[in-house]
């Protein structure tokens, strides 16, 4: 068995079980009607429909939840939240699952979480995101030699128009350092 397959089969331990309970509370009143699945623009690419995911959450099947790519495919369009006949905060529940996966560095969510973390690192340093710096940090974190080429043409076009500039990642002045530190402290990370 190769390493990836072993990682796939390993039981998933999450370090914040109480956070999964919070997601369970969010979807407690789910009646399994499937309006969320029918409304979801990304459902075609998911391994489990949102409706099935909520059932898995209620059953506490954390291995299945976090091995699934369903929550990472939520693009926050809020159709499910708008249409849920029980008025459940489903988009927020998807985000809560993303947060658990990001904190625990779960493999299915690695690409998204490195993308978002690179973004936020640029924000922490400078207060505003520096688009080129953040993409550079993302490529470095992904350690994928081919990934930058997918975005090279767009980067050149944006630079040609003077909208973005080459930005070597720099430490910056730590503009939002205090806020980020306090949040980490309060969330016990």
């Amino acid at each position: 068995m190769n390493q990836t397959a072993m990682a796939e089969n390993k039981a998933i331990t999450i370090s914040f079980p109480e956070e999964l309970s919070e997601v369970q509370e969010m979807v407690r009143a789910c009646i399994q009607c499937g309006t969320c699945s029918g409304s979801c623009p990304n459902e075609f690419a998911m391994d489990f429909t949102p409706r099935r995911l909520w059932r898995m959450v209620l059953m506490g099947q954390k291995d299945d939840i976090f091995k699934s790519k369903t929550f990472s495919l939520c693009s926050s369009c809020y159709y499910c939240t708008l249409r849920c006949p029980r008025g459940l905060p489903l988009t927020e529940a998807m985000a809560a699952l993303k947060q658990i996966a990001a904190k625990d560095g779960l493999s299915k969510y690695k690409q998204s979480s490195l993308f978002y973390k690179s973004f936020l690192e640029s924000v922490r340093r400078h207060g505003k995101v520096r688009e080129m710096e953040f993409m550079t940090m993302y490529f470095t974190a992904m350690k994928s030699p081919f990934l930058p080429f997918r975005f090279a043409a767009l980067g050149m076009r944006l630079m040609g128009k003077g909208k973005v500039h080459i930005q070597i990642p720099s430490k910056g002045e730590g503009k939002l350092k205090a806020i980020f530190r306090k949040v980490e402290e309060m969330e016990g990370r």
Binding site: S76, A95, S113, L120, V123, G127, L176
Partner: peptide
């Protein structure tokens, strides 16, 4: 003004996704 957290903050930390726009 500083960044609102975009879709990045809510995907990583709930409190950060509120604190950044709140600032």
């Amino acid at each position: 003004w500083t960044c609102c957290g975009a879709s990045a903050a809510e995907s990583v930390s709930h409190l950060l996704s509120l604190a950044l726009p709140a600032r």
